[in-house]
Write a protein that binds this DNA or RNA. Structure first.
Lengths: 234, 234
DNA sequence: TTCGGGTTTTGACTTAAGTCAAAGGGTAAG
DNA sequence: CTTACCCTTTGACTTAAGTCAAAACCCGAA
């Protein structure tokens, strides 16, 4: 049921049944397979998306083909809302483009498209969504700030260490004992997310393993010395 | 007059006199000299700021002293609003910190502090500010996206070329003919903004000059080959 | 099971950019 | 006018990370 999904989306969590009903009428569902493009940054902007199942990467490509992943979008998170709000006062422009590319990273990645025009109308009449939206944007700004800080002030090994620690914190919050994470993306993608290339990522993981902080087995990374890892990430 | 300043701030541009009046009552003015710290990222969060005169840099420092500038804030722009909205539903936390450091870059840099608690109350009662806020955040997200793209996918010389072009566009929008920009920050700060160090910036500028695209004279940079520069920036 | 694709790792090499040290240059204060 | 300080540039060197090429690995389809 569409509205059950919508309820789990942070920005819609305060809506009542009537408002949800209105929303369900305007959303469009789409399903993608691994590697499918959801949109390119050259396409005209239709509206923003919600990931329902699977995983989506938001990324940019340089002229010579290097890729950088800005966000990884997991279920019930939104993406591509930014163009909706730039120049909000003015009439919605046909010329708006998506700010980056989006690709499904897993088979059966289901997303919902919320068309821009209709959603704008909904928003004008509802201040709750607006506050949620600001709050969501604030979190994303915080995330991007952190991302920039990592990219500019830390070397690759520190970034890898930091990534493992954050993933671990997300996975088991507040739990002690020997920790481990399982990557849900390829190491190629992880490299692109950490602002490097697969070869360098591989060497960094090896280095952390040689220093006996982690144990890498395919997509599983066991943390053997969490304090050391924290030290290595700063 | 305080309210005259406030009117020029984007997020407050839709307020009526009564609302402006309420706002003037809660703001606090402060003046800083070049090099003065406005806040550190370790300090408890009091509220957000508006630059009235002068220039402010928002920056992060690595453990070994390298600095990276995230934003340069010119008059009538706001900064440090993010902590205000994270976890908006919940009660305002004493434990919130500023997301980065802020320093005045010019003498007589005047700012206004909008205390968090009072502003939150104002916001709950006013949906116009909220929409402006989302819109402002959207612009900043776009800016950070672009910043990350530059940092990860382009070398220093490309970033320098790109910076000169954007500054030129800002300075004289829509004007043709031989163009020039004047830096309002030191080259040390420019380096920190472009994610590099002064020595490398110096060499990049020299390279662009040797390729006869620009002419650097102190803080003045004359563009001698704008098409070449555009090509060099991609 | 084997084949063939992509992914990951390894090794050898190159290069962009950082470090360190010193020399210029501009400017404000004495 | 001179000093002192900071900002900027230059040169010589080091290094982290990227490139290129090949091998190893992994896994699904035939």
């Amino acid at each position: 049921m569409i509205s059950d999904y919508l309820k789990k989306v942070y920005i819609f969590s305060g809506l009542n049944d009537d408002e949800l009903e209105r929303l369900t009428k305007i959303v469009r569902q789409k399903t993608y397979n691994k590697g499918d493009i959801i949109f390119f940054d050259t396409e005209p902007y239709l509206g923003f998306y919600i990931t329902i199942t699977g995983l989506t990467k938001i990324y940019k490509i340089s002229k010579d083909g290097r890729e950088h992943i800005l966000h990884l979008i997991s279920p019930f998170n939104t993406f591509a809302e930014v163009p909706l709000f730039e120049n909000f006062g003015e009439e919605f422009e046909e010329s708006y483009r998506y700010p980056a590319n989006a690709m499904a990273l897993e088979d059966d990645t289901r997303v919902m498209l919320i068309p821009a025009r209709q959603f704008r109308e909904l928003l004008e009449s509802d201040t709750k969504i607006c506050i949620k939206m600001v709050s969501g944007f604030a979190k994303r700004l915080r995330h991007l700030n952190h991302h920039i800080e990592e990219l500019t002030l830390k070397d690759v090994t520190k970034r890898v260490a930091g990534f493992i620690l954050t993933e671990n914190k997300k996975a088991k919050p507040g739990q002690k004992g020997l920790a481990a994470i399982t990557l849900n993306i390829s190491k190629n993608d992880l490299a692109a997310y950490l602002g490097t290339i697969p070869e360098t990522l591989s060497r960094s993981l090896k280095k952390l393993q040689d220093e006996e902080m982690i144990n890498v087995e395919g997509k599983n990374i066991e943390i053997t010395d969490i304090e050391g890892l924290k030290e290595a990430a700063v």
